[in-house]
Write a protein that binds this DNA or RNA. Structure first.
Length: 764
DNA sequence: CAGTGAGCGAGCTTCCGCTTGACTT
């Protein structure tokens, strides 16, 4: 018999708490929720008043059995799940499932994991808050209704295996709408003028870099201005010195950690979370799924000690940050080092770097403001109203900047903060060089995983535990893809005034180059438009915020959960029925034009295997021809010209030793085909539309040569090959590893068979 | 590895939010 059993959500938390509580307490973990709506069907009795039907998922049966056993052996049971909506529901499910006797069950919560806080919590137990539980049930049921009623509509009206939901559909919408803004964006160019001026101070020359405050719309205007500059007398006008301060960013929460780890370390959202999980389990950082920026009292005083001993008293400033995230539940502390005095840890390189980031951010958050002096100098011209301005920045006191500066999403390479030379008003300046550079306006940026999380958080959509899964779901469904794009070359003109001469040169720059950005795919755009048309309210950016308000009213006992659900359902469900009944299948059909030779109508649509262009209308008795779109083409932007080009493949280039050499493009990109063998074209080198027979033969010869070297030995169906990871055995489409210490070239057929039989093949 | 785009129908797919392991290569 155990005296006390404490149940928490996380096993790592259980381990920590057990240390504080002495031998009368046993601490176990529920591993999150233990019960959920039935998986196979809707799991809700709608006519009975939105009564949920719960079941214990298969993977949770073992945990539940262990909890049952532990509970039956304990005198008093303390349920210490998180103090938020989900945590309260977990507590209630535990009581129900374990059939706990209320007289020997206590609900407790603690806000920080310290001996003191836990002992305090145990002194003041309470009962389960059923209003809060009902708010969670309403949330759960609403999400199930939306997901399980709309998804089947998509299976019927768009494509099988698609999905829709309160959160994922909005995430997709953000990406689709951003892409459309980019598609419709028309870049405009103007000329930005920058001068390097010389001042004479004593015997030496010093230089000052300044930008003209006016931009010029055309090359002619820019040139005329440079002509003025050639003749102008430049003098220092105004000198304005402004003191300023900068304050540190608050400690990390899940979303800001994901953003900074992406910006500073290049980690993906899921990578960051996996690393943070590891650090948490090893007791190196506090819990990594949190929406609260607050730090415990104990942590604050520890951090203060670290700041003072490392940097001195005047660098220290205690700050408590207010949590600003919409819908934050604040069940945990901010993400911080468990032991702030440890500025580094042992572990992999990635773990060390993430820890370092968390440590710096936490320490900096408790440091003094930086004191800055910003100087703006204007330079006047005697023959033009245009002024030049130069700004310089001097850090008078670095404060938190000594440790950490937050990064931004936009690369501000131009924003260098120089120190200005000593100038006085009225001083004469001489130009050294003045350039007018053509600059294009840029479209709004595509989302990265991390900036999408930021946006979702601003909208109050999704939770710290779901940001990473949302991103993988919308990619798995094929709605969006994370990709690099090479960008396109663009010509720009630069005018330069130097030593009285104006010269013009043209340069190329790369525009629209992208790395690891989220792009919508055709099916994502079709589903988005379909939802927009038929379920406008659900994918409204404010939908979550509105239902959250109602959940809050349920939590405070002002609204009955089934009343809320009934009101929602009576307006939602008819839209489902009506869409099923009246709407045609959404294929995203768009007419591109007519074929210039045959006169057939060319359309683009979503086919069974992906987006296709189609020439000819079967309803007019024409036999349609099809061609798949290329990976980088969108149904929304493909032109007639590009579409016609797609029909030109596959084509025959000519003959090699009496057999045809053809070129086409397939599932894995462009290829050359010869005697039933495929040869991939080199990426970014060969183009299937313009490749010559000579080049194709070169590719064939190269690959054949490589393949010959690939085969080490051959016995009937057994082949010993050289692969990417070294030699291996290939037999009937299965690959087998050669045991260490064996010479691949020296293997006999029997030895090979032996290896094959010892490694039974798996069905996949 | 590299094709496919007729139509029918059975049986399957799906949500969000809590939490960590199992499986090998």
């Amino acid at each position: 018999m155990i005296e006390n059993l404490v149940i928490v959500e996380s096993p790592a938390k259980a381990r920590t708490i057990e240390k504080f509580l002495g031998k009368d307490f046993k601490v176990v973990s529920s591993f999150g929720h233990i019960r959920d709506l039935t998986k196979k069907n809707l799991g809700i009795d709608i006519t009975g008043g939105f009564v949920p039907r719960y079941e214990i998922p298969k993977e949770k049966i073992k945990v539940v059995n262990e909890l049952r056993k532990a509970a039956s052996e304990a005198k008093t049971i303390w349920i210490a799940s998180d103090e938020d909506r989900e945590g309260e529901a977990i507590a209630w499910h535990l009581i129900e499932v374990l059939n706990l006797d209320p007289s020997q069950t206590r609900r407790i919560v603690f806000h920080e994991i310290t001996k003191n806080a836990i002992e305090e919590a145990i002194k003041s137990p309470r009962t389960v808050d059923m209003n809060l539980v009902n708010a969670q049930q309403a949330r759960r049921i609403l999400d199930r209704l939306v997901g399980f009623e709309i998804s089947p509509v998509l299976w019927k009206k768009v494509q099988p295996a698609l999905s829709a939901g309160r959160v994922q559909s909005v995430a997709v919408r953000l990406i689709v709408e951003r892409e459309r803004e980019i598609i419709n964006f028309k870049p405009e160019s103007s000329f930005k003028v920058t001068g390097i001026f010389r001042i004479i101070t004593g015997s030496s020359n010093e230089y000052i870099k300044a930008d003209a405050a006016t931009k010029f719309n055309s090359e002619e205007e820019a040139k005329r201005f440079l002509e003025l500059c050639r003749e102008a007398l430049f003098t220092v006008g105004n000198i304005a010195v402004k003191p300023g301060t900068r304050s540190p960013a608050p400690p990390f929460i899940t979303s800001t950690l994901q953003q900074e780890a992406y910006r500073k370390l290049g980690f993906s959202v899921s990578q960051t979370m996996a690393l943070a999980q590891k650090l948490y389990e090893e007791g190196k950082i506090t819990y990594m799924r949190t929406d609260s920026t607050s730090l415990s009292k104990l942590a604050l005083s520890k951090i203060r000690e670290v700041v003072i001993s490392e940097y001195g008293e005047k660098y220290s400033k205690i700050r408590q940050y207010k949590t600003t995230a919409k819908g934050a539940q604040e069940a945990h502390e901010a993400i911080r080092p468990a032991y702030p005095e440890k500025s580094s840890i042992t572990g992999t390189q990635a773990e060390k770097r993430l820890y370092d980031l968390i440590w710096k951010r936490t320490i900096a958050s408790q440091m003094a403001d930086a004191q800055i002096e910003r100087t703006t100098v204007t330079i006047d011209m005697n023959n033009s109203p245009v002024i030049f301005t130069a700004t310089g920045e001097v850090v008078l006191f670095d404060g938190f900047l000594k440790v950490y500066t937050e990064s931004s999403d936009h690369d501000n390479t131009e924003d260098e903060k120089a120190i200005l030379p000593p100038v006085k008003a009225g001083m004469e300046l001489y130009y050294n060089k003045i350039t007018a550079t053509e600059k294009y306006t840029s479209p709004p940026p595509r989302y990265t995983e991390a900036s999408l999380v930021k946006k979702l958080e601003e909208l109050g959509i999704g939770r710290p535990s779901t940001y990473a899964p949302i991103i993988s779901t919308i990619q798995q469904r094929g709605y969006v893809t994370r990709e690099d794009r090479p960008g396109e070359k663009r010509k720009i003109t630069i005018l330069e005034l130097s030593e009285g001469k104006i010269s013009s040169l043209s340069k190329t720059e790369i525009a629209g180059k992208e790395k690891s950005k989220l792009f919508p795919k055709d099916i994502g755009m079709i589903v988005n438009d379909f939802l927009q048309e038929n379920f406008t309210d659900i994918i409204d950016y404010n939908f979550t915020a509105e239902v959250e308000e109602q959940f809050d009213r349920i939590a405070s006992g002002k609204l009955a959960y089934n009343k809320m659900l009934k009101d929602f359902y009576t307006s939602f469900h008819p839209a489902v029925e009506e869409t099923l009944e009246k709407k045609n299948k959404a294929k995203g059909v768009r007419v591109l034009g007519t074929h210039p030779e045959t006169g057939e109508t060319i359309i683009v649509k979503m086919g069974r295997y992906g987006p296709v262009i189609q020439a000819g209308d079967p309803e007019k008795g024409e036999k349609p021809k099809f061609a798949s779109l290329q990976k980088d083409q969108l149904m929304e932007t493909i032109t007639l010209e590009e579409a016609l080009k797609l029909f030109s493949l596959p084509r025959t280039l000519g003959q090699l030793e009496g057999d045809d050499v053809t070129v086409g493009t397939g599932k894995f990109g462009p290829y050359v085909r010869y005697r039933n063998k495929y040869y991939s074209l080199k990426k970014n080198v060969d183009d299937p539309y313009i490749i010559t027979l000579e080049r194709a033969i070169e590719i064939i010869r190269e690959k054949d040569k490589a393949d010959q070297q690939k085969v080490i030995k051959e016995f009937n169906e057994i082949r010993i090959l050289n692969g990417r990871y070294g030699p291996y055995i290939s037999f009937k489409g299965q690959n087998y590893r050669i045991p260490k210490g064996k010479d691949p070239a020296g293997l006999s057929e029997e030895e090979c068979l032996d290896i094959i039989n010892k490694n039974p093949k798996k069905d996949k």
